[in-house]
Design a protein around this nucleic acid. Structure first.
Lengths: 176, 176
DNA sequence: ACCTGAACACCGTTCAAGT
DNA sequence: ACCTGAACACCGTTCAAGT
Protein backbone atom coordinates (compact mmCIF):
# COMPACT_ATOMS: atom_id res chain seq x y z
CA UNK A 1 0.00 0.00 0.00
CA UNK A 2 2.30 2.75 1.25
CA UNK A 3 5.37 2.75 -0.97
CA UNK A 4 7.63 4.57 1.49
CA UNK A 5 10.77 3.15 3.01
CA UNK A 6 10.14 0.38 5.51
CA UNK A 7 10.86 1.35 9.12
CA UNK A 8 10.28 -0.28 12.48
CA UNK A 9 7.83 2.48 13.32
CA UNK A 10 5.52 1.95 10.34
CA UNK A 11 5.70 -1.82 10.87
CA UNK A 12 4.61 -1.48 14.51
CA UNK A 13 1.85 1.03 13.73
CA UNK A 14 0.42 -1.10 10.94
CA UNK A 15 0.60 -4.24 13.06
CA UNK A 16 -1.17 -2.46 15.93
CA UNK A 17 -3.92 -1.34 13.56
CA UNK A 18 -4.41 -4.90 12.32
CA UNK A 19 -4.42 -6.33 15.85
CA UNK A 20 -6.90 -3.73 17.11
CA UNK A 21 -9.16 -4.59 14.20
CA UNK A 22 -9.02 -8.37 14.05
CA UNK A 23 -7.06 -9.63 17.04
CA UNK A 24 -3.65 -11.17 17.56
CA UNK A 25 -4.86 -14.50 16.21
CA UNK A 26 -5.55 -12.98 12.80
CA UNK A 27 -2.17 -11.25 12.53
CA UNK A 28 0.39 -13.05 10.44
CA UNK A 29 3.75 -11.86 9.21
CA UNK A 30 2.59 -12.56 5.69
CA UNK A 31 -0.66 -10.61 6.01
CA UNK A 32 1.21 -7.74 7.63
CA UNK A 33 3.65 -7.71 4.72
CA UNK A 34 0.78 -7.68 2.24
CA UNK A 35 -0.78 -4.74 4.09
CA UNK A 36 2.58 -2.95 3.91
CA UNK A 37 2.94 -3.78 0.22
CA UNK A 38 6.20 -5.55 0.90
CA UNK A 39 7.79 -8.96 0.71
CA UNK A 40 7.09 -10.99 3.87
CA UNK A 41 10.80 -11.45 4.50
CA UNK A 42 11.58 -7.74 4.42
CA UNK A 43 9.97 -7.39 7.84
CA UNK A 44 12.60 -9.65 9.38
CA UNK A 45 15.14 -7.02 8.54
CA UNK A 46 13.61 -4.66 11.07
CA UNK A 47 12.01 -6.98 13.59
CA UNK A 48 13.57 -10.14 15.03
CA UNK A 49 10.43 -12.30 14.87
CA UNK A 50 6.72 -12.33 15.61
CA UNK A 51 7.24 -12.36 19.39
CA UNK A 52 9.37 -9.22 19.14
CA UNK A 53 6.70 -7.64 16.98
CA UNK A 54 3.98 -8.24 19.58
CA UNK A 55 6.36 -7.05 22.27
CA UNK A 56 6.97 -3.86 20.32
CA UNK A 57 3.33 -2.94 19.79
CA UNK A 58 2.57 -3.78 23.43
CA UNK A 59 5.32 -1.38 24.47
CA UNK A 60 3.82 1.30 22.20
CA UNK A 61 0.51 0.97 23.99
CA UNK A 62 1.81 0.79 27.56
CA UNK A 63 3.89 3.90 26.88
CA UNK A 64 0.62 5.85 26.73
CA UNK A 65 -0.17 4.89 30.32
CA UNK A 66 3.17 6.10 31.62
CA UNK A 67 2.00 9.66 32.23
CA UNK A 68 -1.27 8.95 33.98
CA UNK A 69 -1.64 11.42 36.82
CA UNK A 70 -4.42 11.95 39.30
CA UNK A 71 -5.64 15.37 40.36
CA UNK A 72 -5.98 16.29 44.03
CA UNK A 73 -9.16 15.19 45.68
CA UNK A 74 -10.67 12.39 47.76
CA UNK A 75 -8.97 9.02 47.19
CA UNK A 76 -12.13 7.26 45.95
CA UNK A 77 -12.29 9.77 43.08
CA UNK A 78 -8.65 9.17 42.30
CA UNK A 79 -9.07 5.40 42.32
CA UNK A 80 -12.16 5.68 40.15
CA UNK A 81 -10.20 7.85 37.73
CA UNK A 82 -7.39 5.29 37.46
CA UNK A 83 -9.85 2.46 36.90
CA UNK A 84 -11.74 4.27 34.15
CA UNK A 85 -8.54 5.42 32.49
CA UNK A 86 -7.38 1.81 32.43
CA UNK A 87 -10.66 0.72 30.95
CA UNK A 88 -10.54 3.36 28.21
CA UNK A 89 -7.13 2.07 27.20
CA UNK A 90 -8.29 -1.53 27.04
CA UNK A 91 -11.35 -0.65 24.99
CA UNK A 92 -9.24 0.77 22.16
CA UNK A 93 -6.69 -2.05 22.34
CA UNK A 94 -8.84 -4.85 23.67
CA UNK A 95 -7.11 -7.66 21.80
CA UNK A 96 -3.80 -6.69 23.33
CA UNK A 97 -4.85 -6.81 26.98
CA UNK A 98 -3.36 -10.27 27.50
CA UNK A 99 0.02 -8.96 26.50
CA UNK A 100 -0.34 -5.70 28.38
CA UNK A 101 -1.07 -7.54 31.63
CA UNK A 102 1.95 -9.77 31.06
CA UNK A 103 4.27 -6.92 30.08
CA UNK A 104 7.07 -5.61 32.25
CA UNK A 105 5.26 -2.35 32.95
CA UNK A 106 2.58 -4.31 34.77
CA UNK A 107 4.58 -7.06 36.40
CA UNK A 108 7.42 -4.83 37.57
CA UNK A 109 6.26 -2.84 40.57
CA UNK A 110 8.31 0.32 40.12
CA UNK A 111 6.63 1.84 37.07
CA UNK A 112 4.85 5.22 37.21
CA UNK A 113 1.41 3.55 37.30
CA UNK A 114 2.34 1.65 40.44
CA UNK A 115 3.71 4.77 42.08
CA UNK A 116 0.47 6.70 41.53
CA UNK A 117 -1.59 3.74 42.69
CA UNK A 118 0.45 3.42 45.87
CA UNK A 119 0.08 7.14 46.55
CA UNK A 120 -3.68 6.86 46.23
CA UNK A 121 -3.84 3.81 48.50
CA UNK A 122 -1.63 5.52 51.06
CA UNK A 123 -4.01 8.45 51.26
CA UNK A 124 -6.84 5.92 51.59
CA UNK A 125 -5.17 4.79 54.81
CA UNK A 126 -3.70 1.43 53.77
CA UNK A 127 -0.78 0.45 56.00
CA UNK A 128 2.66 0.81 54.44
CA UNK A 129 3.36 -2.91 54.81
CA UNK A 130 0.28 -3.90 52.82
CA UNK A 131 0.65 -1.24 50.15
CA UNK A 132 2.34 -3.33 47.48
CA UNK A 133 0.12 -6.34 47.85
CA UNK A 134 -3.06 -4.28 47.88
CA UNK A 135 -1.97 -2.47 44.73
CA UNK A 136 -1.20 -5.81 43.10
CA UNK A 137 -4.60 -7.18 44.04
CA UNK A 138 -6.41 -4.19 42.58
CA UNK A 139 -4.53 -4.34 39.29
CA UNK A 140 -5.13 -8.08 38.98
CA UNK A 141 -8.82 -7.78 39.82
CA UNK A 142 -9.56 -4.82 37.55
CA UNK A 143 -7.22 -6.01 34.83
CA UNK A 144 -8.78 -9.44 34.98
CA UNK A 145 -12.31 -8.11 34.81
CA UNK A 146 -11.37 -6.00 31.80
CA UNK A 147 -9.86 -9.08 30.21
CA UNK A 148 -13.06 -11.06 30.64
CA UNK A 149 -14.94 -8.07 29.30
CA UNK A 150 -12.64 -7.81 26.29
CA UNK A 151 -12.74 -11.53 25.52
CA UNK A 152 -16.49 -12.10 25.43
CA UNK A 153 -18.14 -9.18 23.68
CA UNK A 154 -21.51 -10.04 25.16
CA UNK A 155 -20.77 -9.01 28.74
CA UNK A 156 -19.35 -5.55 28.17
CA UNK A 157 -21.53 -3.34 30.26
CA UNK A 158 -20.86 0.09 31.75
CA UNK A 159 -22.99 -0.36 34.85
CA UNK A 160 -21.38 -3.72 35.64
CA UNK A 161 -17.96 -2.13 35.50
CA UNK A 162 -19.17 0.76 37.65
CA UNK A 163 -20.48 -1.66 40.26
CA UNK A 164 -17.16 -3.49 40.32
CA UNK A 165 -15.24 -0.26 40.94
CA UNK A 166 -17.57 0.84 43.74
CA UNK A 167 -17.37 -2.60 45.34
CA UNK A 168 -13.58 -2.42 45.34
CA UNK A 169 -13.60 1.10 46.75
CA UNK A 170 -15.89 -0.07 49.54
CA UNK A 171 -13.58 -3.01 50.14
CA UNK A 172 -10.56 -0.72 50.44
CA UNK A 173 -12.46 1.65 52.73
CA UNK A 174 -13.45 -1.24 54.99
CA UNK A 175 -9.87 -2.40 55.43
CA UNK A 176 -8.51 0.78 57.02
CA UNK B 1 0.50 -45.41 22.17
CA UNK B 2 -2.75 -47.00 23.27
CA UNK B 3 -3.87 -49.40 20.54
CA UNK B 4 -7.53 -49.51 21.56
CA UNK B 5 -10.43 -48.37 19.44
CA UNK B 6 -10.61 -44.64 18.97
CA UNK B 7 -13.51 -42.96 20.80
CA UNK B 8 -14.52 -39.39 21.48
CA UNK B 9 -13.86 -39.94 25.15
CA UNK B 10 -10.24 -41.04 24.81
CA UNK B 11 -9.63 -38.21 22.33
CA UNK B 12 -10.95 -35.61 24.78
CA UNK B 13 -9.08 -37.04 27.75
CA UNK B 14 -5.79 -37.19 25.87
CA UNK B 15 -6.26 -33.67 24.50
CA UNK B 16 -7.02 -32.37 28.01
CA UNK B 17 -3.87 -34.00 29.33
CA UNK B 18 -1.79 -32.35 26.61
CA UNK B 19 -3.40 -28.96 27.15
CA UNK B 20 -2.93 -29.12 30.92
CA UNK B 21 0.72 -29.94 30.35
CA UNK B 22 1.74 -27.57 27.57
CA UNK B 23 -1.14 -25.20 26.89
CA UNK B 24 -3.65 -24.75 24.10
CA UNK B 25 -1.04 -23.15 21.89
CA UNK B 26 1.02 -26.33 21.86
CA UNK B 27 -1.90 -28.60 21.01
CA UNK B 28 -2.20 -29.57 17.38
CA UNK B 29 -4.41 -32.16 15.74
CA UNK B 30 -1.31 -33.82 14.39
CA UNK B 31 0.48 -33.99 17.73
CA UNK B 32 -2.67 -35.30 19.38
CA UNK B 33 -2.90 -38.01 16.72
CA UNK B 34 0.72 -38.97 17.32
CA UNK B 35 0.05 -39.18 21.05
CA UNK B 36 -2.91 -41.44 20.30
CA UNK B 37 -0.86 -43.54 17.89
CA UNK B 38 -3.29 -42.81 15.11
CA UNK B 39 -3.46 -41.11 11.75
CA UNK B 40 -4.17 -37.37 12.11
CA UNK B 41 -7.26 -37.66 9.94
CA UNK B 42 -8.85 -40.38 12.04
CA UNK B 43 -9.65 -37.79 14.68
CA UNK B 44 -11.94 -35.97 12.30
CA UNK B 45 -14.15 -39.01 12.29
CA UNK B 46 -15.07 -38.39 15.91
CA UNK B 47 -14.64 -34.65 16.32
CA UNK B 48 -15.80 -31.99 13.85
CA UNK B 49 -12.70 -29.81 14.09
CA UNK B 50 -10.23 -28.23 16.51
CA UNK B 51 -12.78 -25.74 17.83
CA UNK B 52 -15.16 -28.59 18.69
CA UNK B 53 -12.28 -30.39 20.36
CA UNK B 54 -11.51 -27.43 22.63
CA UNK B 55 -15.21 -27.01 23.29
CA UNK B 56 -15.43 -30.64 24.31
CA UNK B 57 -12.57 -30.61 26.78
CA UNK B 58 -13.83 -27.32 28.23
CA UNK B 59 -17.22 -28.95 28.79
CA UNK B 60 -15.49 -31.88 30.50
CA UNK B 61 -13.87 -29.51 32.96
CA UNK B 62 -16.87 -27.27 33.65
CA UNK B 63 -18.95 -30.38 34.32
CA UNK B 64 -16.87 -30.87 37.48
CA UNK B 65 -18.05 -27.51 38.82
CA UNK B 66 -21.70 -28.35 38.32
CA UNK B 67 -22.14 -29.96 41.71
CA UNK B 68 -20.44 -27.38 43.87
CA UNK B 69 -22.48 -26.94 47.02
CA UNK B 70 -21.88 -24.82 50.08
CA UNK B 71 -22.51 -26.04 53.58
CA UNK B 72 -24.56 -24.00 56.01
CA UNK B 73 -22.77 -21.26 57.82
CA UNK B 74 -22.01 -17.53 57.65
CA UNK B 75 -22.06 -16.15 54.09
CA UNK B 76 -18.42 -14.97 54.15
CA UNK B 77 -17.34 -18.57 54.72
CA UNK B 78 -19.54 -19.74 51.88
CA UNK B 79 -18.19 -17.08 49.52
CA UNK B 80 -14.62 -17.93 50.54
CA UNK B 81 -15.36 -21.59 49.87
CA UNK B 82 -16.66 -20.85 46.37
CA UNK B 83 -13.66 -18.68 45.57
CA UNK B 84 -11.12 -21.27 46.71
CA UNK B 85 -12.96 -24.06 44.93
CA UNK B 86 -12.83 -22.03 41.74
CA UNK B 87 -9.14 -21.42 42.24
CA UNK B 88 -8.40 -25.11 42.78
CA UNK B 89 -10.10 -25.90 39.48
CA UNK B 90 -8.10 -23.28 37.60
CA UNK B 91 -4.82 -24.45 39.06
CA UNK B 92 -5.21 -27.94 37.59
CA UNK B 93 -6.53 -26.66 34.26
CA UNK B 94 -4.87 -23.27 34.13
CA UNK B 95 -4.35 -23.18 30.37
CA UNK B 96 -8.05 -23.67 29.82
CA UNK B 97 -9.28 -20.77 31.94
CA UNK B 98 -9.76 -18.52 28.90
CA UNK B 99 -12.18 -21.03 27.44
CA UNK B 100 -13.87 -21.79 30.75
CA UNK B 101 -14.66 -18.11 31.31
CA UNK B 102 -16.04 -17.85 27.78
CA UNK B 103 -18.06 -21.07 27.98
CA UNK B 104 -21.84 -21.20 28.24
CA UNK B 105 -21.72 -22.38 31.84
CA UNK B 106 -20.17 -19.08 32.83
CA UNK B 107 -21.87 -16.67 30.48
CA UNK B 108 -25.35 -18.14 30.92
CA UNK B 109 -26.74 -17.05 34.26
CA UNK B 110 -28.93 -20.03 35.04
CA UNK B 111 -26.32 -22.69 35.74
CA UNK B 112 -25.95 -24.35 39.17
CA UNK B 113 -22.90 -22.23 40.03
CA UNK B 114 -24.88 -19.05 39.56
CA UNK B 115 -27.73 -20.36 41.65
CA UNK B 116 -25.44 -21.13 44.59
CA UNK B 117 -23.70 -17.79 44.24
CA UNK B 118 -27.01 -15.93 44.23
CA UNK B 119 -28.14 -17.84 47.32
CA UNK B 120 -24.99 -16.84 49.15
CA UNK B 121 -25.32 -13.19 48.12
CA UNK B 122 -28.97 -13.17 49.15
CA UNK B 123 -28.06 -14.32 52.63
CA UNK B 124 -25.38 -11.62 52.65
CA UNK B 125 -28.18 -9.11 52.32
CA UNK B 126 -27.80 -8.00 48.70
CA UNK B 127 -31.05 -6.61 47.30
CA UNK B 128 -32.91 -8.90 44.90
CA UNK B 129 -32.65 -6.36 42.08
CA UNK B 130 -28.85 -6.20 42.31
CA UNK B 131 -28.33 -9.93 42.76
CA UNK B 132 -27.53 -10.86 39.18
CA UNK B 133 -25.19 -7.98 38.54
CA UNK B 134 -23.33 -8.45 41.80
CA UNK B 135 -22.86 -12.14 41.04
CA UNK B 136 -21.59 -11.26 37.57
CA UNK B 137 -19.14 -8.76 38.99
CA UNK B 138 -17.75 -11.26 41.47
CA UNK B 139 -17.25 -13.96 38.83
CA UNK B 140 -15.57 -11.51 36.46
CA UNK B 141 -13.29 -10.11 39.17
CA UNK B 142 -12.24 -13.46 40.64
CA UNK B 143 -12.15 -15.21 37.27
CA UNK B 144 -10.10 -12.36 35.88
CA UNK B 145 -7.63 -12.42 38.75
CA UNK B 146 -7.22 -16.15 38.34
CA UNK B 147 -6.63 -15.62 34.66
CA UNK B 148 -3.85 -13.12 35.31
CA UNK B 149 -2.47 -15.53 37.87
CA UNK B 150 -2.58 -18.41 35.40
CA UNK B 151 -1.05 -16.45 32.55
CA UNK B 152 2.05 -15.09 34.26
CA UNK B 153 3.52 -17.79 36.47
CA UNK B 154 5.49 -15.23 38.46
CA UNK B 155 2.58 -13.67 40.31
CA UNK B 156 0.87 -16.78 41.63
CA UNK B 157 0.76 -16.17 45.34
CA UNK B 158 -1.56 -17.62 48.00
CA UNK B 159 -1.56 -14.59 50.26
CA UNK B 160 -2.33 -12.23 47.36
CA UNK B 161 -5.33 -14.35 46.44
CA UNK B 162 -6.42 -14.43 50.08
CA UNK B 163 -6.24 -10.65 50.29
CA UNK B 164 -8.32 -10.31 47.12
CA UNK B 165 -11.05 -12.56 48.54
CA UNK B 166 -11.17 -10.71 51.86
CA UNK B 167 -11.30 -7.37 50.06
CA UNK B 168 -14.26 -8.54 48.00
CA UNK B 169 -16.04 -9.90 51.08
CA UNK B 170 -15.54 -6.54 52.81
CA UNK B 171 -16.85 -4.81 49.70
CA UNK B 172 -19.99 -6.96 49.69
CA UNK B 173 -20.50 -6.42 53.42
CA UNK B 174 -20.24 -2.66 52.98
CA UNK B 175 -22.92 -2.59 50.30
CA UNK B 176 -25.76 -3.98 52.41
C1' DA C 1 22.38 -1.88 3.86
C1' DC C 2 18.25 -3.43 2.38
C1' DC C 3 15.28 -6.48 -0.09
C1' DT C 4 13.69 -10.98 -2.12
C1' DG C 5 12.57 -15.94 -3.88
C1' DA C 6 12.92 -20.51 -2.78
C1' DA C 7 12.79 -23.74 0.69
C1' DC C 8 11.84 -26.10 5.28
C1' DA C 9 9.09 -27.63 8.87
C1' DC C 10 5.05 -27.04 10.59
C1' DC C 11 -0.35 -26.10 10.74
C1' DG C 12 -5.98 -27.31 10.00
C1' DT C 13 -8.90 -29.39 6.89
C1' DT C 14 -10.97 -31.80 2.56
C1' DC C 15 -11.58 -35.59 -0.22
C1' DA C 16 -11.16 -39.67 -2.71
C1' DA C 17 -9.74 -44.09 -1.91
C1' DG C 18 -9.08 -48.05 0.83
C1' DT C 19 -10.78 -52.07 4.58
C1' DA D 1 -18.54 -47.69 9.57
C1' DC D 2 -14.07 -46.54 10.25
C1' DC D 3 -9.50 -45.38 8.80
C1' DT D 4 -5.84 -43.35 5.70
C1' DG D 5 -2.61 -40.98 2.12
C1' DA D 6 -2.24 -37.25 -0.74
C1' DA D 7 -3.25 -32.69 -1.42
C1' DC D 8 -4.51 -27.66 -0.50
C1' DA D 9 -4.01 -23.39 1.57
C1' DC D 10 -2.05 -21.46 5.06
C1' DC D 11 1.75 -20.50 8.92
C1' DG D 12 6.88 -18.65 10.98
C1' DT D 13 11.48 -18.60 9.84
C1' DT D 14 16.23 -19.44 7.46
C1' DC D 15 19.34 -18.67 3.98
C1' DA D 16 21.58 -17.78 -0.16
C1' DA D 17 21.28 -14.66 -3.68
C1' DG D 18 20.31 -10.31 -5.62
C1' DT D 19 20.58 -4.59 -5.79
Amino acid sequence: MAEKRLTEDVIFRTALRLVDADGVEALSMRKLAAELGVNPMSIYHHVDNKAALLDGITRMVTAEVKDITVSDGPWPDQLRRLAYEFRALTLTHRHLLRYILASDDFTQRDGPMWRTLRTVLRSAGIAEAELNQTAMVLVMLIGGLLHTEAEGAEHRDDSTFALAVELLIDGIAART
